[in-house]
Amino acid sequence: MYEAALHHIRVNGAADYATLPHHNLETHSGHSVSVAKDPRGSRLLQKKINEGTPQEICKILKELKYHLHELINHPFGHFVIQKLFQSSNISVAQKNALVYLIIVDLQKLKNVCMDDQGNRVIQQILANVKEPSMIHKIAVIMRSISLALMKNFNGGYVIQQCLKLFPPVCQNIILDVVAKNCVDIAKDKCGCCSIQKCIEYDELPAFMQLVNKLIFNAVDLAEDSYGNYVMQFLVKRKKMEVNSMLISRLRYRYIRLSKNKYASNVVEELLRYSGADNVAVIARELMKSPEFLNLVQHPYGNYVVQRAVKYTEGPLHERLCSIILSNEKKVSSCLYGKMVLLCARAGCNQ
Rank of each mutant, 00 (worst) to 15 (best):
E3L: 13
E3N: 11
H8I: 00
H8Q: 07
I9N: 02
V11Q: 00
D16K: 03
L20N: 06
P21Y: 01
N24T: 02
N24Q: 05
H28Y: 09
G30S: 14
G30P: 06
H31I: 04
A36D: 15
P39I: 13
R43C: 09
L44G: 11
L45K: 12
Q46T: 12
Q46I: 15
K47T: 15
N50R: 06
N50H: 13
T53G: 02
T53Q: 03
P54V: 04
I57N: 13
I60Q: 05
K62I: 12
Y66H: 14
L68M: 05
L68Q: 05
I81M: 07
I81H: 09
Q82R: 13
S88G: 15
I90K: 05
A93K: 02
A97C: 11
I102D: 04
V104I: 02
D105T: 09
L106Y: 10
Q107E: 15
K108H: 12
R120M: 11
K130Q: 13
P132N: 09
S144G: 12
S144Y: 08
L149T: 00
K151Y: 08
G155R: 04
Q160C: 04
Q160Y: 11
L163D: 02
L163I: 08
L165G: 14
V169M: 13
V169A: 07
C170T: 01
Q171M: 03
Q171W: 05
N172Q: 08
I173M: 01
I173C: 05
D176E: 09
V178E: 01
V178M: 03
A179W: 05
A179P: 00
D184Q: 10
K187G: 03
C190D: 09
C190R: 03
G191V: 04
C192N: 07
C193G: 10
I199K: 01
E200A: 09
Y201E: 06
D202M: 14
Q209T: 11
V211P: 07
F216A: 05
F216I: 02
V219M: 03
V219S: 01
Y226N: 01
F233V: 07
K239C: 14
K239Y: 09
V242G: 00
L246G: 08
R249H: 08
Y252E: 12
Y252T: 08
Y254F: 06
K259T: 06
N260C: 02
Y262C: 14
E268V: 09
L271I: 10
R272T: 15
Y273R: 11
Y273L: 14
S274A: 11
S274I: 07
S274E: 10
A276Y: 11
N278I: 09
N278K: 12
V279E: 01
I282S: 04
M287S: 07
K288S: 00
P290K: 08
E291N: 07
F292T: 01
N294P: 01
V296T: 14
P299G: 11
P299E: 05
P299M: 05
Y300Q: 03
N302T: 15
Y303D: 00
V305T: 01
R307M: 04
K310H: 14
T312I: 05
E313H: 06
P315L: 13
R319H: 14
I324F: 12
C334A: 04
C334E: 03
Y336P: 06
C348F: 07
N349W: 02
N349V: 13
